[in-house]
Design a protein around this nucleic acid. Structure first.
Lengths: 145, 145
DNA sequence: TATTGTTATACTCTATAACTATA
DNA sequence: TATAGTTATAGAGTATAACAATA
């Protein structure tokens, strides 16, 4: 290999990033009509699995700063997807729940996400697909030893 | 499945993002002493494989706006990793080349990146590893049919 | 004294508009 | 007239500091 002649497609990190980016870009227009982005969809999923969770805990779980959480949850609440109520155990924090509409939307979007994932895998450049296969092969090899 | 109870780890997109993020975060401190970030490392790789490439072409290749390219290449040049010279065919654009030091650094960092990739795959949460295996299985199934 | 949520503010990053030089 | 590179600037997104309420 001649000095400096490195092909980014041979990098697992680069290929993982490309695949991740491709899915995000295909999913974004699906979410857009509902007024949310992929991070907010993630928040809905976390609330759904953890009814009564606090903003702080969601942020810790998703690596989102607590000051950033405020506006994200504000929007979800004003759109009618979740509700804040003061926690009984610790009245500094909120207990957050999905509304019926929020549960409905989460399920609907989850199905749409599955379709996006399936389509996106098809559309990935061959080199990226190959890199993902290499990632899996490495994981399996590590587990066998 | 109860309404709204969706586990993000069951999302391929989420897991791909987590894996990508984990690699980026582990690679960043390796690059930091050299004054560059992962995107600039990518630029070095692209220049290395395409000696004489223009800023515009690099940007198109890596989805980076041309106005954003300026500062990125400025830094790489002032650090002595690449050089701009006016293109002979089209004197509006630059022909960009890696310096000897730039080639050296690219090779060195490429090796470090391989180690990071290997270590990071080990450290990924089990659920993320499983999702990556599922991605590979889906790709292989699609190819067989 | 520490923590949750909040607001205001400063900072970073990126893209838009306008310019120069070449084509 | 269009394009590569550049600069200045505005915009979006995020984190820091400070405050109120509660622990």
């Amino acid at each position: 290999m001649e000095a400096g002649m490195r092909n980014l497609f041979d990098s697992l990190g680069y290929s993982l990033g490309k695949a991740s980016q491709a899915m995000a870009e295909r999913f974004a227009p699906v979410l857009e009509p509902y007024g949310i982005d992929s991070r907010q969809f993630g928040i809905l999923c976390v609330i759904g699995r953890n009814p009564g969770i606090s903003q702080k805990s969601i942020g810790t779980n998703m690596r989102v700063d607590r000051t950033t959480m405020v506006a994200l949850v504000d929007a979800l609440e004003s759109l009618g997807y979740c509700e804040r109520s003061r926690s009984r155990e610790d009245r500094r924090s909120y207990a957050i729940y999905l509304t019926a509409r929020g549960k409905e939307l989460t399920d609907e979007l989850w199905g749409a996400m599955r379709e996006v994932e399936d389509l996106t895998l098809d559309e990935l450049p061959r080199e990226v697909q190959d890199a993902l296969l290499a990632v899996a092969a490495t994981i399996q090899r590590k587990r066998r030893t």
